[in-house]
Design a protein around this nucleic acid. Structure first.
Lengths: 133, 133
DNA sequence: GTTAAATATAAGTATCTACTTATAGAGGAG
DNA sequence: CTCCTCTATAAGTAGATACTTATATTTAAC
């Protein structure tokens, strides 16, 4: 029921992390230290801060790491990027479609809600629209 | 210098907002109230909470609103979705490329940093890689 | 007009998250 | 082995953000 790649979009939600991806994209595989330097041009960020961002990106599958001596070489990982792209692709050009799927999507929940949740009405307009009103 | 559609990805970072988009995608244009009901099946959310999420989605260009009497009909807005897709498209298949662009990307900052920032070295490995070591 | 319904805003609060400094750990150089 | 570099983790904190309840606003219905 995890309808979306949660970690990926949460990772992409931060501007610093997006910048890291852009840096890796334009400059190619980079040691963590180079990323620290690059980021410090634009903002006052400590090395641990960057390291933590890299961890988030890693756990989201957005970057890969490869040890090289004492350094860690980071690169963009297609896994996470593709996951995000795949989720967004569901919204390609199918906007404001006929609302037939409405019942399908909400009917189950309507039944559920009727006894599980506190008494909320507002089913009214759902029914209206479904019947074409 | 706003290298990325910040608002869009920040909006997408929240699971509730992603769920809203999915609901609008599958069910088509929906009044806010229907979204409230649908979301309350999965979590305990107040109406104002949903309303605030809708505002964020609106400001990110991810949804459109249309008044219909006392109701507001929401639908997915291609503007924001396309913005996110466009940004992600930059990462399509160009991974771990030759790192020629490295100098281009970091050289300026290296100079800058040398006097503006506190004395950080770590230029070493940048130079190494650039010279092909 | 009054009342009710649908939604948005106000104001306050708790939780999450992105930072900080300090430190640990791991690898190469001498 | 000792020292130094690079990176990661620990622990604590400030600020952002996602909620709450209460209320305002708007429109329809009577």
């Amino acid at each position: 029921m995890d309808h979306a790649p949660a970690r990926v979009f949460e990772a992409l939600g931060d501007p610093v992390r997006r910048r890291v991806l852009e840096l890796l994209q334009t400059a190619g595989e980079q040691p963590a230290g180079a990323l620290v330097d690059a980021l410090q041009e634009q903002a006052r960020l400590s090395q641990p801060a960057v390291s933590q961002h890299l961890r988030v990106l890693r756990e989201a599958g957005l970057v890969q790491v490869r040890p090289d001596g004492t350094r860690r070489l980071y690169a963009v990982d297609a896994t996470g990027v593709d996951a995000a792209r795949a989720w967004l692709d569901r919204f390609a050009d199918t906007f404001v479609q006929p609302l037939d799927a409405l019942e399908t999507e909400l009917a189950r929940g309507r039944r559920e809600r009727r006894r599980t949740q506190v008494g909320r009405r507002a089913d009214a307009e759902v029914r209206d629209r479904a019947s074409g009103a």
